[in-house]
Amino acid sequence: MCAQAVDSDVGPAEIKPIVAFHDVSKWYGNVIGLNKLSVRISPGITGLLGPNGAGKSTLLQLATGQLFPSKGTVEVLGQRTWNNPALNRSIGLCPEQDALYEWMTGADFLATCARLGGMGRTQARHAGERALETVGLTRQKDRIVAGYSKGMRQRTKLAQALVHDPQVLFLDEPMTGTDPVARHDLMDIIQRLAADGKTIIFSSHVLHEVEAITSNIILLNRGRLLAQGHIRQIRDLMDQHPHRIVLVCNNCRVLGAGLMQWPHVESIHLHDRDQSLVVETRQPDAFYAGLPQLALQTKQEITEMYSEDDNLEAVFRYLVPT
């Protein structure tokens, strides 16, 4: 499937983008990481979505100057990223890998990162404390990193990306492995940082995470841009695909028989001993409008109803070829 860039606020042409990839390809030997990717990312939060191996990490590593493009150009804040250490003053990266200097305390690690960025000892200590406060790790700052929980480690990685107060933040799978509470906290932190004026590009393959934080997304698959724009607009691309709606009721077989009469219903699958059914329809609006009437007619109480297409999983399912 070709890239389907939609008119969106992710990359409007009139604003010079924060991050710009121009026809970028990246090869690892014979393996392609990114394939002729052109994308422009403007301020705000942008979610980078794709299944494993889609090229998300490659994109972030190119954007942070860790890799050089085999072809094309990568610019952040209007500057080339490869071999441009000065640019690192304006960007921060929270890496995907769960690696830290285990023998250091959180405060020590942050102060060291700040000092590596050119700050003096006192300034670095204060910057580290500020960053730890931002991610809510002040109380644990003097503990050895090796004893941190997964959530605390993720926060520490985020804090090191923030310690020099960069304008652009790249977060590579920042919620990986965290529990729901830590996940919620991290989402809050990311949204606060964006509200403070930082541009945030974060990757994830857990789609509801992205949906909870931003509606601006870039979809990647097998190194190619699949779609870019607002989640709603991307969902419009799915119109040619049937929408899946799940109904939970006492005797769904009766309800299903009624639904079979509707011309826009493509298929019905019963599950859980007729306790639930999955309907595929090409006209979800008509479906939702007619369902209460049908429930009354068949005297079926619908205890739960949700659309599997309400999250980004559906976007993947429709747009990512299997």
């Binding site: 604003i15 705000g44 209007g78 441009n84 000065a86 050119g118 304008q167 509200a195």
Partner: peptide, 23 residues
């Protein structure tokens, strides 16, 4: 996004090299 964003943010930041003493 509720924060103020420069109209042309890319030009608003100049990633200048670190001064020698900071290096």
């Amino acid at each position: 996004m509720t924060s103020s964003i420069p109209e042309n943010p890319a030009s608003a930041v100049a990633a200048t090299p670190l001064p020698r003493c900071n290096v």
